[in-house]
Design a binder for these strands. Structure first.
Lengths: 165, 165
DNA sequence: ATTGTTAATGCGATTATTTGCAATAAGGAT
DNA sequence: ATCCTTATTGCAAATAATCGCATTAACAAT
């Protein structure tokens, strides 16, 4: 239970918020997944242990947990994914093509954050940034077929001027 | 028409995609707004000049235009906002509290992107990053009442242990 | 253990977004 | 100008996400 390291009850109480079984269940579900999960996956996991937990409660708490910095979310629409916020700030490089994540040396990013904060006195409170782009493999065209479904999923076919078979 | 600088017909054709009046209308609508706009605002603007343009077409093209790097989108859910992608890469600091944007010296960010690319050979194709956090004014508590509605909008009341009037 | 306060949940009803598919129309070729 | 291919649209139906409000239950205080 990674999230226990975060002392989430303490953080919630400190803000005047309450620790409910629903919130615990949601944190558990994300934690047990052990990777970045979509709302759908979270909902499915919850069906088992907490079948009565309401849809609206999930959405509300996902927002809440993000605000509390207990959970990090990144991505667009249905592809948005959540994970337990790590004690250690860390960042991701996510490939738009194949969806794979690459680690990212955090010192560099933290340095940028500090520099920005120093200059503009704006505090970036995100300890978990996601940068989207194209990974090495996809850039080289190495894995065209293997995971090229990203495009299809959003409904656009790749370029193919009229030319038979 | 800032977006004409981008040669969007060229980019679309290059990918085997088509330039339709609907796409033009959507780009125009975002452009005319002259600032980061929500789907709702885009829809409202389109009602006037292109009343027949379908909902689904708007959503599909917003995705499409982002993929084409003609439009940038950032933010969560209904707060997601779009703007015409500038020829010049630029980045934003957006305050979670009051929603205001602060400019951000882009050289620093570009340097980070280059460094990452060099190290991991991952190409961050985002020329428009949004960093969320707390701006100077809100951090100092200067404008509590003026724009503190951000919290209410998502349905949470600020901490206030029971104490009358 | 009981009580009071009010944050949080569940529910039903809206509203927002997505999807499948037939009909339409962009743009290359003749 | 006309034809052909197929990307894109509009529509209607399906899903997903949000909202208002009455009810429930955390938790601080007694």
């Amino acid at each position: 239970m990674t999230h226990n390291l975060l002392d989430y009850p303490g953080k919630m109480h400190a803000g005047g918020y309450r620790v409910t079984p629903q919130r615990k269940a949601i944190l558990d579900a994300i934690c047990e997944a052990g990777r970045r999960v979509t709302v759908e996956e979270i909902t499915l996991r919850l069906r088992k242990k907490s079948p009565t937990l309401n849809r609206a409660t999930i959405y509300r708490n996902l927002l809440f947990l993000q605000r509390m910095h207990l959970v990090n979310g990144a991505g667009d629409g249905k592809d948005k994914r959540f994970e337990i916020a790590s004690v250690e700030p860390h960042h991701h490089l996510i490939c738009r093509e194949c969806g794979r994540e690459t680690g990212l040396d955090r010192t560099r990013v933290e340095r940028l954050k500090r520099a920005i904060q120093k200059e503009s006195r704006f505090t970036i409170d995100d300890d978990h940034l996601c940068f989207f782009g194209i990974c090495r493999r996809c850039a080289s065209g190495a894995n065209r077929k293997s995971q090229a479904s990203a495009k299809q999923r959003t409904g656009w076919k790749p370029r193919r001027k009229h030319a038979s078979s």
